[in-house]
């Protein structure tokens, strides 16, 4: 950056945007944490006063612990499934580029679901795997699968599809395929070429995509809200606490746990990605 001029750049003009980030981002999160610690607003049957119970209930209550584990497993697992399918797919798409169908149209179709809220993804799952879903009408065993853990997994895979494929496509577009060709010419097997040539190059980007997408799936409420009948994930309990007698401190505690899970996943993936980048270059 030349630094001589920073044309059009002024802190004054940036202030309204910064103020919004602070007033409606930082302040509510700070208050949420204070409320979670029992030092802020309280609701029905909640004692004011410093406590960690609102946070630790996520681990101490067996039911909540189960929801917490399920949230992490579904959130990260669905993104991992998408990665296993998405890495070879986007690599191949970047290699064969124009030869594979209508590249532009495909890429629009692959990004389309990002505009759909989680509730629509949940509803799609009901149409496919619900009690009268089209798969259930053909294979009766699949009727109602939408509300079971495997069905919820399928929903979250659909939800993470555009969030994984889009960034992967961008990351793979600059991949130098001649590296793999060279390794193969020198006698490396497909698997060997993938592990020792391709993976080190793409891994930092892959880890980052995993973290970013998993943060969204872990924190998402819409999909599970639509599919909640027998299985439960943590966001449901956050909402329930609020709607049952407005237990705001308890809801805030669970919300903080959920936020730490999502933001933690994101932060760990960024750090890991930066570390891999340094290690592998």
């Amino acid at each position: 950056m030349s630094g001589a001029t920073a044309r059009f750049s002024s802190l004054g003009a940036a202030v309204p945007g910064i103020a919004l980030l602070v007033a409606f981002g930082v302040v509510p999160l700070a208050v949420l944490t204070v409320t979670a610690l029992g030092l802020g607003a309280t609701g029905a049957g909640e004692e004011p006063g410093l406590t960690l119970d609102n946070l630790t209930q996520a681990v101490t209550s067996p039911r909540l612990r189960q929801e917490l584990v399920a949230s992490v497993v579904v959130g990260i697992g669905s993104v991992l499934i998408m990665l296993v399918a998405g890495i070879p797919l986007t690599l191949a798409m970047s290699r064969h580029g124009g030869q594979v169908g209508h590249g532009r149209l495909t890429s629009v179709v692959f990004t389309l679901p990002i505009a759909l809220p989680g509730i629509v993804v949940g509803f799609f799952t009901i149409l496919m795997l619900g009690r009268t879903g089209i798969f259930g009408q053909v294979v009766p065993a699949l009727g109602g699968a939408a509300y079971t853990l495997p069905g919820i997994f399928v929903a979250y895979v659909y939800f993470s599809f555009p969030r994984v494929i889009g960034p992967l496509q961008a990351a793979m577009s600059t991949f130098d395929h001649s590296l793999v060709d060279t390794a193969r010419t020198l006698g490396a097997s497909r698997a060997r070429a993938f592990v020792s040539v391709t993976l080190p190059v793409v891994l930092p980007a892959v880890v980052q995509v995993l973290g970013t997408a998993a943060a969204v799936t872990i924190g998402g409420y819409g999909t599970i809200a639509t599919l909640a009948q027998s299985e439960r994930l943590l966001p449901l309990s956050v909402a329930d606490r609020l709607s049952n007698g407005y237990q705001v401190a308890s809801a805030s505690g669970l919300a903080v746990v959920l936020a730490l899970l999502a933001a933690g996943t994101l932060a760990v993936s960024r750090l890991l990605s930066a570390w891999l980048e340094r290690r592998l270059r």
Binding site: F24, G25, L29, L32, G219, P235, A251, A255
Partner: peptide, 21 residues
Amino acid sequence: LATLPLAVPGIALSIGLITVY
């Protein structure tokens, strides 16, 4: 600061928002 709304789930943010405003 600008990455916070990305990292923090919407339901967590909204509980903070309705408590403050």
